[in-house]
């Protein structure tokens, strides 16, 4: 009860953007996730935390059906985006346009900065018009907080940017197709504290327009950027709640043990 009231107004007005019910994931005969139920609220940042191998990336990949690209991987249960089943109700291209992803290692295409951002909109045929495309690219780079740093070298390769810039380029690339949800798998693990702070500031800004799910190994980062935190352990969702409550007074001893650094 008190845990909910710790963030007044947050949990009452939040609307689930994604609902996950009874999801199991298997890699061949090995079960990686067991009976996951989770609501991901709109315009909130949800942080997924847990020890290495607990299934965070696997869970994230369920949300945009990236697990389908892995041979042997089987997902059962129900995942809905705005009430529509992502497996049966949406085609995968549309789903991935609505649910974008940013990976742990920045992975710009070996193309110009401009083309990196324009890539998605072109594939999806968002526009044929050069001028409109310019607008999408500039807007996306602005939203990602990168525009000022690259506006004079849009034709240079994206791979020539610094790590932090590359990660923001990847975020711009994800934004360019106008997604509703952005999935981020340890987006700052290769970045220095300044670049990390910029990404975190960006996440906070993006939250008003998007729903964000972020996997992070930094408890401090989860505490700083998210409104809700979900703790996974051995493929099971152990505890979820408002971030402030999870980090000051977790209910489950496993959560407590993990976030305080007491796992034996």
């Amino acid at each position: 009860m008190h845990a909910e009231s710790a963030v007044p107004g947050l949990s009452d007005c939040a609307r689930p953007k994604i609902t996950v019910r009874g999801v199991d994931v298997f890699y061949g005969g090995k079960q990686a996730l067991t009976d996951i139920d989770l609501d991901i609220n709109e315009n909130e940042v949800t942080a997924l935390i847990g020890p290495s191998g607990c299934g965070k990336s696997t869970f994230l990949r369920c949300l945009n059906r990236m697990n389908e690209t892995i041979a042997d991987c089987r997902v059962t249960g129900r995942i809905e985006l705005d009430g529509i089943d992502v497996t049966t109700g949406l085609d995968v291209v549309e789903l991935r346009a609505r649910v974008g992803m940013v990976f742990q290692k920045p992975n710009p295409f070996p193309k110009s900065i401009y083309d990196n951002v324009a890539f998605g909109p072109r594939i999806l045929g968002l526009t044929e018009d050069r001028h409109e495309m310019d607008e999408i690219v500039v807007h996306s780079l602005r939203r990602a907080g990168l525009y000022d740093e690259v506006k004079d070298r849009m034709d240079q390769p994206g791979t020539g940017l610094s790590g932090g810039q590359q990660q923001r380029l990847c975020i711009a690339r994800a934004i360019a197709v106008g997604p509703e949800v952005i999935l981020m798998d340890e987006p700052c693990s290769a970045l220095d504290p300044i670049a990390t702070a910029r990404i975190e500031e960006l996440i906070e800004e993006l939250r008003s327009e998007y729903t964000i799910v972020i996997v992070t190994h930094s408890m401090q980062q989860a505490a700083r950027v998210s409104q809700r935190t979900a703790f996974f352990h051995l493929g099971v969702l152990i505890e979820t709640g408002p971030t402030a409550a999870i980090f000051t007074n977790p209910e489950n001893p496993l959560t407590q043990g993990y976030i305080t650094g007491r796992f034996g």
């Binding site: 401090q220 505490a223 980090f247 000051t248 007074n249 977790p250 959560t255 407590q256 976030i259 305080t260």
Partner: peptide
């Protein structure tokens, strides 16, 4: 140490 949970308390 950036203490958390009961450590923070």
């Amino acid at each position: 140490r950036s203490p958390m949970a009961d450590d923070l308390r």
